[in-house]
Simulated scan of single mutants.
Amino acid sequence: MALKFQYLLAILAVIFLCSDVSSAPLSGGRRGAIVGGWRKIDPNNKEVVENGKFAIDEHNEEAKTKLQYKTVVEAEEQVVSGINYKLVIQAIDGTDSNKYEAIVWVKAGAIELKQLSSFRKLD
């Protein structure tokens, strides 16, 4: 009987500890972030702007174009193994101003990894 009681206490302790943990580890420390879901964020945020410029630079290098970054119009983030940033970027192509959707994946750590996952012109 005492052994069953010890098992029961151990199970209750695990349940208590798991239910008392904040959601910060699941959201990558970002308040209000939902793992796997997209959440709107401030397009003027310094990190968002840096990622917008990175997206334009990477696209220019890959596609041999000469787009010029203007601004980030809309921004969303998605917590994955790192963070995906879905950005609507206003850029200048010659004399035309167009909007582009870019997804930039960022993995923070001792060495930050960053990758342009997709880039497309919006109609």
Rank of each mutant, 00 (worst) to 15 (best):
E76D: 12
V49P: 01
D57Q: 12
I15M: 09
C18I: 09
L122H: 07
L12V: 11
S19P: 01
P43G: 15
V48P: 11
N51S: 07
G29Q: 05
L17P: 09
L12C: 11
I11W: 08
F16G: 11
V21P: 04
D123Q: 11
G29H: 05
G29F: 07
G82W: 14
V49K: 14
T95M: 08
T71I: 10
L67P: 00
N51D: 07
K64V: 01
V35E: 08
A63C: 00
W38V: 02
A10E: 07
Y7M: 02
V79L: 06
G82E: 10
N60S: 04
Y100K: 00
D93L: 03
A10Y: 06
S22H: 07
E74G: 11
A10T: 06
A108E: 05
R30S: 05
V14L: 10
A91T: 01
V21E: 12
N98M: 04
E47W: 02
Q115T: 09
F119M: 02
Q115P: 00
S97R: 07
V35R: 15
G109T: 05
S117F: 01
N44Y: 14
A10D: 08
K107A: 05
A110V: 08
D93K: 01
I111H: 09
Y85G: 03
A102F: 00
G94I: 03
Y7Q: 07
S22P: 10
K64Y: 02
A63G: 00
K40S: 14
E77A: 11
E50Q: 11
I103K: 14
R120W: 03
K53G: 02
G52P: 05
K86V: 05
K53L: 08
S22A: 03
S118F: 01
N45P: 09
R39D: 07
V72L: 09
L3I: 03
E76A: 10
S22T: 15
A13Q: 12
E77N: 13
L9A: 08
K86E: 11
Y7V: 04
D20W: 13
P43A: 13
E61S: 11
V48W: 13
A10K: 07
E47N: 15
R120A: 14
V49G: 05
Y69C: 01
L12I: 10
V49N: 10
V14K: 05
M1Y: 10
A91D: 03
N44A: 15
I34V: 15
A2D: 08
V106T: 07
S22C: 11
